[in-house]
């Protein structure tokens, strides 16, 4: 546990040592606010549906950028060799890194609090979907992060980690969308709909917190963190 905390602290701080974190959060907030308020006054409804609807797409670019350097950088400067001769298990390192990235993304998400505040001033929104939306966004962010981290563990090049991360996340996102399910054989449709990253977010975002959706995101996170631990161990059988 102490090891996870040590890795977590180090990773979390490393986001903020360079100005990248601040640039990142700023760009994230500016882009999402701009896109949201662009249509907000046209639709003229006091809710955040439009905002949360953007997130699966914004995360597609935003999250792999957070995770791209996690392993790639360690591999490139060979600190991974050192890390793996210290008395920490691969699982502790993976968890530490994941939790640090999750905290960073959560901070970015929560810094959009100005939107619900603004809406509350302008009208009287239903708080349920807003709370649900935030919980869903964090869960979805966690799933994207686990995928991005896993991808990063296969390369020492950050750019490759980013691009492949975007592609893999996009594929898992799109398999559940109507675009694919319409073309797929009918017996596969329920499975594809269940596996798609976006579908579970839609119901949470409507304010319906279903344990199946939460379970789905936790499983995705668990699955990809597991793959990540395996890929770190693969050095042993090279």
């Amino acid at each position: 546990m102490n090891n996870i905390v040590a890795i977590f602290k180090k990773e979390f701080k490393s986001f903020f040592i360079s100005p990248i974190a601040y640039v990142f959060i700023t760009v994230y907030l500016v882009v999402t606010n701009f896109l949201f308020f662009q249509s907000f006054f046209l639709i003229n409804q006091a809710d955040m549906r439009g905002y949360f609807g953007l997130l699966p797409w914004i995360f597609l670019l935003f999250v792999p950028a957070v995770t791209m350097r996690s392993w790639a950088e360690e591999k490139k400067v060979k600190t991974l060799e050192l890390l793996q001769t210290w008395p920490v298990s691969d699982m502790q390192v993976v968890l530490g890194k994941f939790l640090a990235a999750l905290s960073f993304v959560t901070i970015a998400i929560l810094l959009s609090f100005t939107i619900p505040v603004t809406i509350s001033i302008l009208g009287s929104p239903d708080p349920g979907p807003i709370w649900g939306g935030y919980i869903g966004a964090i869960l979805m962010g966690a799933a994207y992060l686990a995928i991005g981290l896993w991808v990063s563990s296969y390369t020492e090049n950050q750019i490759i980690a980013f691009i492949v991360g975007v592609v893999v996340t996009f594929l898992i996102f799109i398999i559940g969308s109507p675009f694919v399910t319409m073309a797929a054989p009918s017996w596969m449709v329920p499975a594809l709909t269940y596996l798609g990253l976006g579908n579970h977010f839609e119901s949470i975002e409507r304010g319906v917190i279903d344990s199946r959706d939460i379970l789905y995101y936790i499983s995705v996170v668990g699955f990809f963190l597991f793959l990540n631990i395996q890929s770190l161990g693969s050095r042993k059988w090279e």
Binding site: N2, N3, A6, K13, S14, I17, V77, T79, L82
Partner: peptide, 29 residues
């Protein structure tokens, strides 16, 4: 691993940390 102290050939280090932070991190690990 607990018994061993290792200075690797390429001496990899976390270059964005200060010396103090780095040693504190290693100590905690």
């Amino acid at each position: 691993r607990k018994k061993i102290g290792y200075l690797a050939e390429s001496n990899p280090l976390y270059s964005d940390m200060t010396v103090q932070e780095y040693l504190k991190f290693v100590g905690e690990i």
